[in-house]
Deep mutational scan, measured.
Amino acid sequence: MSIQHFRVALIPFFAAFCLPVFAHPETLVKVKDAEDQLGARVGYIELDLNSGKILESFRPEERFPMMSTFKVLLCGAVLSRVDAGQEQLGRRIHYSQNDLVEYSPVTEKHLTDGMTVRELCSAAITMSDNTAANLLLTTIGGPKELTAFLHNMGDHVTRLDRWEPELNEAIPNDERDTTMPAAMATTLRKLLTGELLTLASRQQLIDWMEADKVAGPLLRSALPAGWFIADKSGAGERGSRGIIAALGPDGKPSRIVVIYTTGSQATMDERNRQIAEIGASLIKHW
């Protein structure tokens, strides 16, 4: 067993022997301040990774656009098919120029040779490549099948209805392509620590998230040296922004954090800054 596999296998073990965790309302004060600064709703939840206990939450059962955070769930569904012998990570998928959609920095470079399922998941999570996500959605049967996968996990809230990039439209009061912070946090925890996926697939999923290259201005910008984070960000229309993450000190994750916002007129930089400040408060009061 590799060191990384050992780390993920012992996530519940280490967490069980940690000192009790206590909620700190100071972080919620910052979440509410972010709402004021952005002029928009902000949803927040913080779960203990081992027990699933909610440590703090704000608007945990209000719907927010998922945006690209759905790509972690998508690759979880792909990995479940791999575990069941219905898919192979090494299978190569070929596609054409007509398949390319807006923001496809990886797939646009491989029109000639195609990409493997493993490479597509890596591109979808680490670079948020939209064509990679659409190609992977095709392998599982489309958005409705991802929703069905989530329902089978016990998540009857999260739903995907459309493809990239239309799913980022974020129309107010439109339930399409949305989740709730509580539902997303619980589902992410199941994917990373539950028995739904094999140990190898859980490790692969967290490795992809740990290698995320496009979430630097968010929670990662607030992390002290030595902290662990595996995350996936999302951005959408109407001032929408979000991030889902597993993080913790001492090089291992111990909490799940989900943050979503929508309806702001603020710039992307300002949305990023507010999420980073929430992260800084979380870490300060850990």
Rank of each mutant, 00 (worst) to 15 (best):
E26D: 14
T27Y: 02
K30N: 03
K30G: 05
V31H: 00
K32C: 07
E35A: 12
Q37A: 04
L38E: 07
G39S: 13
A40T: 04
R41F: 09
R41E: 11
G43C: 03
I45Q: 09
I45V: 09
E46N: 08
L47M: 11
S51R: 08
K53V: 15
E56I: 04
S57C: 09
S57A: 11
F58Q: 11
F58S: 10
P60R: 12
E61Y: 07
E62D: 05
R63T: 13
R63A: 06
R63E: 04
F64Q: 02
P65S: 11
M66C: 10
T69A: 03
T69K: 00
T69C: 09
V72E: 02
V72D: 00
V72R: 01
L73C: 12
L74D: 01
C75F: 00
G76V: 08
A77I: 08
A77Q: 04
A77L: 05
A77M: 12
S80E: 13
S80K: 03
S80R: 13
R81D: 08
R81V: 09
V82Q: 09
G85T: 09
Q86K: 07
Q88A: 08
Q88K: 13
L89Y: 08
R91F: 05
R92H: 11
R92L: 12
R92S: 08
H94Q: 06
Y95S: 03
Y95I: 04
Y95Q: 02
Y95N: 02
S96Y: 07
N98D: 11
N98H: 10
L100A: 10
E102L: 06
S104C: 10
S104T: 12
P105W: 10
V106F: 14
E108D: 10
H110V: 11
L111F: 11
L111G: 12
L111T: 06
D113L: 04
T116G: 08
T116H: 12
R118N: 15
E119V: 02
E119C: 15
L120E: 02
L120G: 02
S122Y: 08
S122K: 08
A123E: 06
A124F: 00
A124M: 14
I125D: 01
T126A: 08
S128L: 00
D129W: 00
T131M: 14
T131D: 02
A132K: 00
A133L: 01
A133K: 01
A133E: 00
N134R: 08
N134T: 07
L136F: 01
L136C: 09
T138K: 15
T138A: 12
T138F: 14
T138N: 15
G142V: 02
K144R: 05
E145M: 09
E145W: 13
L146G: 05
T147N: 04
A148E: 04
A148Y: 05
A148W: 08
F149W: 12
L150P: 01
L150H: 07
N152V: 08
M153H: 06
M153I: 04
D155M: 02
D155Y: 01
H156F: 14
H156S: 11
V157L: 05
V157H: 14
T158E: 00
R159K: 15
L160P: 10
D161H: 05
E164C: 01
E164V: 00
P165D: 14
P165R: 06
E166F: 06
E166N: 15
E166I: 14
L167H: 02
N168I: 06
A170D: 04
A170K: 15
I171V: 15
I171C: 15
P172L: 11
P172Q: 05
N173P: 06
N173C: 06
N173A: 06
E175D: 10
R176P: 08
T178S: 04
T178N: 03
T179M: 01
M180I: 15
M180E: 14
M180Q: 13
P181L: 03
P181C: 14
A183E: 06
A183D: 04
A183G: 12
A185P: 00
T187F: 15
L188R: 00
L188F: 05
K190H: 08
K190P: 05
L191C: 13
L192H: 12
L192K: 02
T193K: 15
E195A: 14
L196W: 13
L196S: 10
L196G: 12
L197W: 10
L199S: 08
A200I: 08
A200N: 15
A200Q: 07
S201A: 13
S201D: 03
R202Q: 14
R202A: 10
R202N: 06
Q204R: 04
L205P: 00
I206G: 06
M209W: 03
M209C: 13
E210K: 10
E210M: 13
K213I: 06
K213D: 03
G216H: 09
G216D: 10
P217D: 15
P217S: 09
P217M: 15
R220K: 13
S221M: 12
S221F: 04
A222M: 08
L223A: 10
L223E: 02
A225I: 08
G226H: 05
W227E: 00
W227D: 00
F228G: 13
I229F: 13
I229K: 02
I229W: 02
A230V: 08
K232S: 00
K232I: 00
K232M: 00
G234K: 00
G234I: 00
G234F: 01
G234S: 07
G234C: 09
A235G: 07
G236Q: 03
E237S: 09
G239V: 01
G239T: 03
S240Q: 12
R241C: 15
G242P: 00
I243V: 13
I243W: 09
I243C: 14
I243N: 03
A245G: 08
A246N: 15
A246D: 04
L247M: 12
L247Y: 04
G248T: 00
P249C: 05
G251L: 13
P253W: 06
S254Y: 04
S254H: 05
S254R: 12
R255T: 06
I256T: 05
I256L: 08
V257H: 02
V258W: 01
I259A: 09
Y260N: 02
Y260T: 04
T262P: 02
T262V: 06
T262N: 04
G263Y: 07
S264Q: 06
Q265D: 14
Q265T: 11
A266S: 07
M268W: 11
M268A: 12
D269W: 15
E270P: 03
R271W: 14
N272F: 02
R273Q: 11
Q274P: 07
Q274M: 09
I275P: 01
I278Y: 01
I278Q: 00
S281C: 15
S281A: 12
L282T: 06
I283C: 13
I283V: 14
I283N: 09
I283M: 14
K284P: 06
K284N: 07
K284G: 11
H285D: 09
W286G: 02
